[in-house]
Design a protein around this nucleic acid. Structure first.
Lengths: 130, 130
DNA sequence: GCGTTTTTGACAATCATTGTCAATCGCGCG
DNA sequence: CGCGCGATTGACAATGATTGTCAAAAACGC
């Protein structure tokens, strides 16, 4: 009774499929617009809800860049962070076991438990800096 | 022409003074309410602008917790990160030279320049976990 | 003091996100 | 195979933090 598997609906499938194709981060509104262009009829509200669900399930990553809108992206599995180009948005996934350990250790030193963290690296990519 | 030092106004002073006294992170609206209670007459708009100015000047730190509002805090100088209690908001400043170096190195490996980063650690503090 | 320029602040505007709730659809059961 | 219940959808309103506006007030140099 703890779990309810979400139903398999046309809309959910459409959002998932779209995320599998596009690259980089996109806002909910962005994705909604793409779906409409494809002829898929999906409400904006549903896109938001579906994305939240996928994010909760850990199937996609959410980023909150300065500017206020949430960006979603289908990422590889496992815990990792992002190196994002400020200019063009090009994203590289980076893993940093050392950082994970460091964060855990620092938190433990202060007696904090149930630790999680957020980490984003911003920079200008070679192409944009050129 | 390049620089305009901000003028010294009653309102700016009030906001600065308040930030010097309170501990932990507070939202703009929060700070605005406190100022009113003290009898200081400051507009909400001004509080926002002043905080932005202070943040740009690097005199205060901004955090964007999940939940949407910006939180401001007067912090010690220099680059550091925060370990925040999810429950009560208790905050510890932590410095992690190793992490800084790691972030820079990772970015450099991918050719990214002008690197910056954000890092927040969330957990439950000893008091709340008790 | 005096004038110029910045700052202020009440209010409207913006805009992403969330809430609402009746209509619809998926899915398992009979 | 068709029914019915409950989850899901989606159009629309509501929310709420932040930003824009612009006339009035204050600050600073002289």
């Amino acid at each position: 009774m703890t779990e309810g598997a979400p139903r398999n609906t046309r809309q959910r499938t459409a959002v998932s499929a779209l995320l599998a194709e596009v690259e980089g981060f996109h806002s909910a509104q962005d994705l909604h617009a793409m779906l409409r262009q494809r002829g898929e009829r999906v409400g904006l509200t549903t896109v938001y809800r579906t994305l939240q669900g996928l994010a909760d399930a850990g199937e996609i990553d959410v980023m909150r860049p300065p500017g206020g809108e949430h960006l979603y992206r289908r990422c590889s599995e496992g815990h990792h962070h992002h190196l994002v180009c400020r200019r063009c948005g090009r994203t590289v996934e980076v893993a940093g076991p050392a950082v994970e350990r460091w964060a855990g250790r620092v938190a433990a030193e202060h007696g904090y438990v149930e630790v999680s963290h957020t980490l984003e690296i911003f920079g200008t990519c070679p192409a944009c800096a050129g």
